Amino acid sequence: MITLEQVETMIKAKLPDAQVKVQDLTGGGDHLEAVVVSSEFEGKNRVKQHQMVYGALQEAMASEAIHALALKTYTPSAWEEAKTA
């Protein structure tokens, strides 16, 4: 089983400036939610942002260490707006 810290580390390896928060949605460790804030998302649509995160987790997804992943991705400015909304 993969740990939440390992998922965070994998994302940060591909997106070094990212702020990452990973939660286990079911308690089983394989259905996760990740909130990722990165300046590397600037100018990219939501699909491209998610592809970037999935790319970072490709190995864990392929081995089914992560069965399901809910993603919320934000640029830093969009994150600030979301926090105040």
Rank of each mutant, 00 (worst) to 15 (best):
V47N: 11
T26G: 08
V47P: 07
L32A: 01
G55C: 03
E42V: 11
H50N: 15
G28R: 07
V36S: 00
V36M: 00
M52R: 10
H50V: 11
V53P: 07
E40F: 08
A56V: 06
A56P: 06
S39I: 09
G28M: 05
H50G: 08
D30N: 15
V35P: 02
Y54I: 08
R46H: 13
D24Y: 03
L32P: 01
E40D: 14
G27P: 02
L25W: 03
S39A: 15
T26W: 07
V37E: 01
T26L: 08
G43L: 07
N45Q: 04
E42K: 13
K48Q: 15
E40T: 05
H50D: 12
K44H: 14
E33C: 14
A56F: 09
T26P: 04
G43R: 07
S38E: 05
V47L: 15
S38N: 01
V37F: 00
L25E: 00
E42I: 12
Y54N: 15
T26A: 13
Q51N: 13
H50W: 09
L25A: 03
H50M: 12
L32T: 00
G43I: 05
V47R: 10
S38M: 03
G28N: 10
V53K: 05
V36G: 03
S38A: 06
G27I: 03
A34G: 00
Q49C: 12
R46Y: 11
V47Q: 10
S38R: 04
G28Y: 04
V53S: 06
V37R: 01
E33K: 13
F41I: 05
S38P: 05
L32N: 01
M52A: 14
F41C: 05
E42G: 07
A34D: 00
E42S: 12
E40H: 09
S39K: 13
E40C: 05
E33M: 15
V36T: 02
D30K: 11
V53H: 07
V47Y: 09
D30H: 14
D24K: 01
V53C: 06
Q49P: 05
A56N: 06
G27M: 04
H50I: 10
E42H: 11
A56C: 12
G28V: 04
